[in-house]
């Protein structure tokens, strides 16, 4: 299946600052991408370049099979980082307006607006002016605007900001549904814990350069450092073995670190020889946060893990 968006050798500078340097990126349909990186790493410039809102100094940009143009951008949904809805507009009228600008008839636009107002739990606010809404409600309106016309690509810059957990979950469900229907979703965010439950591909940027571009699952597997959480009863001496680097008590559990290049088979064999003692064993997989910090430290040794 052809990519929905592609950047090849894209470079963009603003005065003396290189926002994006020689970036290659391909987005596939039906996937949810997490675009991560510290402030100023080039995430927003990357999004805007793919949308055609920012022109690259060098490189090739393709959106839905060609250079971004009005036709292809009309098939895109966009949630900007900063809310910028017209203050005096009413929620429903704004949604109808955008749908009509995308070519839908008035009746169809109204139907879609009404549907998304319900879906995003904005029913009571449909006739209210934007300026009377809370930040979270305004964010939901932005998300509704992005999803309203069943876009094939959805760019979301911090979509979960200002949303309470209940509505974060609501938005996540709609994003997953859009991806399940074949849309490509790109999520630029600093909310790593929330993003981990949503994305299935991680792209990390650092100072305008891509430092990670991998399916989340394989990225986590690669980053796995051989740490296992073991719960056992009785004597724990069977756990020790030549491949074990360290055993650290953690409450009722033991955190067991297996040396690099070794695997868990030896531990499991010894557990089999000590019947009844092993209650449970699970891999301590790195989180998206761990991945992020690993790469942050790799490129900036001064980066500290927040306590």
């Amino acid at each position: 299946m052809p990519p929905t968006a592609r950047l090849q050798g894209v470079t963009r500078t603003f005065k003396d600052v290189t926002a994006v340097a020689d970036l290659d990126l391909e987005l596939e349909p039906g996937r949810i991408y997490g675009l991560l990186g510290p402030n100023g790493s080039g995430k927003t410039t990357t999004l805007r370049t793919m949308l055609g809102l920012v022109q690259p100094d060098r490189g090739v940009v393709e959106l839905l099979g060609g250079p971004p143009n009005d036709a292809s951008r009309g098939r895109v949904g966009f949630v900007p980082e900063q809310r910028g809805l017209p203050d005096n507009s009413k929620v429903e009228s704004l949604l109808v307006f955008i749908a009509r600008m995308r070519g839908f008839s008035r009746a169809d636009a109204k139907r879609r607006a009404s549907e998304w107002i319900d879906r995003l739990d904005l029913g009571e606010k449909a006739s209210d002016r934007v300026k009377t809404l809370s930040n979270g409600q305004q964010q939901k309106v932005q998300i509704a605007l992005a999803l309203l016309c069943e876009p094939e690509v959805i760019f979301m810059d911090e979509p979960l900001a200002a949303l309470d957990p209940q509505h974060q979950d609501l938005v996540n469900r709609h994003v997953r549904e859009a991806a399940a229907n074949g849309a490509t979703v790109v999520l630029s965010t600093h909310r790593l814990h929330e993003a981990q439950t949503l994305i299935d591909h991680v792209v990390m940027m650092y100072r305008g350069t891509k430092v990670l571009d991998q399916p989340l699952e394989s990225a986590i597997e690669e980053a796995f450092d051989g740490t296992w959480r073991v719960r056992a009863t009785g004597d724990h001496s069977w756990i020790e073995g030549p491949e074990i680097d360290a055993i650290t008590p953690d409450g009722n559990d033991l955190v067991v670190r297996i040396a690099a290049g070794e695997n868990v088979r030896g531990l499991l064999s010894r557990a089999a020889e000590a019947p009844g003692q092993l209650r449970s064993i699970e891999a301590v997989l790195p989180t998206l946060f761990d991945l992020y910090m690993t790469h942050a430290r790799r490129h900036d040794p001064a980066a500290e893990i927040p306590q």
Binding site: R73, G74, R75, V76, P80, G84, M101, R102, A146
Partner: peptide, 23 residues
């Protein structure tokens, strides 16, 4: 003032998606 305000803000970027500048 009102048009410029809304045009200058991000909403204009949302509006511009798929809408020719001439429109």
């Amino acid at each position: 003032t009102s048009l410029t305000k809304s045009r200058d803000e991000e909403f204009f970027n949302v509006l511009r998606l798929g809408t020719p500048s001439a429109v």
